[in-house]
Amino acid sequence: MTEAGQEQIMCPVCGGPVIIDNKDKVNRCQYCASPVLGPSQSRDCVNHPGVLAKEVCHVCGDLVCEKCMQKRVGEYGGKLLTIVNCQKPSCIAESEWAKPLNEEYQKLANMDWADRIDNIILRITGFGAIVMMVFELLFFLGVLYFQYFTPWSMPEVRLVLGSSFVVGPFLMIPVSILVFCIFGNLLAAILLQSALQVYVPDRQLGAGVTLLVILIIEVAHLLFRGLFFGLLTLPNPYFLPLMIGAFLFGTVLVFIGSLMAIYVGNKKRIQLKKARIQLNLTLKKGT
């Protein structure tokens, strides 16, 4: 209870205290500054009685309908935040520092339709890339295990430098395992990063194409590596089928995800291009 015996009104957003200064205008929460209706305030637009208000003018606090408001994007401390002002000249003048939102372009460039599919693409490519990465990590350990902890050995490799200097298998086997597996891990890391980029609308198309290219290199590298290491001669009946199964699963996921990303990303590119042509807008450099 307050000192006057009245109950404290809580902000419906954050729970902070709301002090009633205006009975017929919005009052702001003392903590988060969210607008709360005054005790005798109408919920209608101040200019159109009978029409339910949609927004609050951030300058004068009047409730306004869609016809009476302007949405602007203003920079607060380096971040773009949206504000709303009414059509009163004083309120417009007070909001001049923020740039009006181009509602028409906003509608044309709206990509809400892609939210769901983008989520799916992120999950598919992301999961596939994680499988690939886990595969690479296990493959590395597996090859090391079979090479050094079992009687099996990969074919002997020698590096001939000139006529008299030869680097023998004692050094070349671990070096080749290390180099090929590290390269495979690097490819998987690039794949993983590209797989996460598909969620960013501006980078979706590029990320999709990158995924596809990296995937092709990764598959070729795996095949070459398997043959080079002579894994077909591996006596263990589980390791190779398990690894190939995991790799195929990851590859299929990333492949599908990248195709989807390319398709949706291209659709977005066309949408933006059309919107710009329609509104005769040019693209600012750096965007």
């Binding site: 994007v73 773009l80 949206t82 740039k99 009006p100 939102l101 181009n102 372009y105 906003q106 460039a109 990509m111 939210d115 983008d118 969620y199 960013v200 609308p201 501006d202 710009r276 807008l281 040019t282 693209l283 600012k284 750096g286 965007t287």
Partner: peptide, 16 residues
């Protein structure tokens, strides 16, 4: 993922 379409003569604030 929000892309505010802020325009003057040109368009789009450098969101990146």
């Amino acid at each position: 993922r929000y892309r505010p379409a802020v325009t003057t003569a040109s368009l789009v604030i450098p969101i990146d």
